[in-house]
């Protein structure tokens, strides 16, 4: 395992290099960052603060926690949060189960065939979300393709309830999220030093053992990054759950839209946004911690 020690050793070294750059005596690198930071502040931080501001007033414009109390008092909010997080987690699981083997395969290909596959993966990204959601409806609904085939083949007598539930929602979201998951994972897998795999093989490790003990741990940061990306994006999904969930899957984004369009209650909508943002940040922190721990363990192994 001495070979993997070298690789694990270089990662923190590179990180340290960056750190000295930032915390070095010169402030000049900061100046170059200023325009970028200003844009981030204007486009990200300021709207978030505005959201917080909006959420802290009641209908009459008085400072109040009423918008947050409502989130606690009304049970449907809790259920909607749970549903959204569950559906997002299921989407992540589906992406990992489908994406990791596929990424492994693509990463093992030569440049030209890999480019072909990556192109094929990216292609659906250019199709509108709405079109893809309705396409699934055509396939899954009661008189849809799947049910019609199964019925005419005599496999089933009654149409299966495929559409308008968690299943169809997760399916539709996985379809949209898979390319977004694959890209960082393929990148991470391509960066793995092939000599490490050969080293493991030369020391008598079987192919599955090498895959499990050498390849996957090295790809883990990419997998965690992809999974985090998918999870965070899934939390804000609107179109897919609205169409494929058929009202049986209530996502947070749908509630926010309803608060705005039918109640025109910006305070309530902003409060949901704030809570969603905070819970997402908390999850990101946990994910970061897991990554740190994973890296720490990989590094600690050869000390």
């Amino acid at each position: 395992m001495s070979a993997s020690a070298t690789s694990a050793g270089t990662v923190p070294a590179r990180g340290e290099g960056r750190l000295t750059g930032i915390f070095g005596p010169s402030l000049r690198p900061y100046l170059g960052l200023m325009p970028g930071l200003a844009i981030v502040f204007l486009c990200v931080a300021l709207p978030c603060l505005w959201l917080l501001y909006l959420s802290s007033f009641d209908d009459a414009g008085r400072l109040s926690a009423v918008n947050y109390e409502r989130l606690i008092d009304q049970v449907s909010y809790r259920r909607i949060f749970v549903t959204t997080f569950l559906v997002s987690a299921q989407t992540v699981i589906c992406c990992v189960l489908l994406g990791v083997p596929l990424a492994t395969f693509i990463a093992s290909l030569g440049r030209r065939s890999a480019a072909l596959f990556i192109g094929a993966i990216l292609f659906p990204l250019w199709t509108s979300l709405l079109v893809r959601a309705y396409a699934w409806l055509v396939i899954l609904q009661r008189n849809g393709l799947v049910n019609n085939w199964l019925m005419s083949a005599g496999v089933i007598d009654e149409p299966l309830p495929l559409a308008f539930n968690t299943f169809s929602t997760v399916l539709g979201m996985t379809h949209i999220m898979l390319p977004i998951f694959l890209l960082p994972v393929i990148g991470a897998m391509r960066d793995i030093d092939r000599s490490l795999i050969r080293a493991a093989a030369s020391m008598g490790a079987s192919r599955t053992y090498t895959y499990r003990k050498v390849f996957l741990p090295l790809a883990l940061p990419g997998i965690v990054a992809g999974a985090t990306l998918v999870f965070v994006m899934s939390l804000g999904f609107y179109v897919t759950p609205a169409i494929l969930g058929g009202g049986n899957v209530q996502a947070i984004s749908m509630r926010i839209a309803r608060s705005l369009s039918t109640y025109s209650n910006f305070g309530a909508a902003a409060a949901i946004g704030v809570v969603l943002l905070l819970s997402t940040l908390a999850l990101l922190a946990v994910s970061l911690l897991i990554r740190r721990l994973a890296q720490g363990r990989a590094g600690g192994g050869h000390a």
Binding site: Q74, V75, S76, R79, I80, T83, G247, Q250, T262, Y263
Partner: peptide, 15 residues
């Protein structure tokens, strides 16, 4: 009664 009734309805829907 809009706000109150719609909240009750949504609670029922998500049960």
């Amino acid at each position: 009664n809009n706000d109150r009734v719609k909240a009750m309805y949504e609670d029922m829907m998500t049960e």
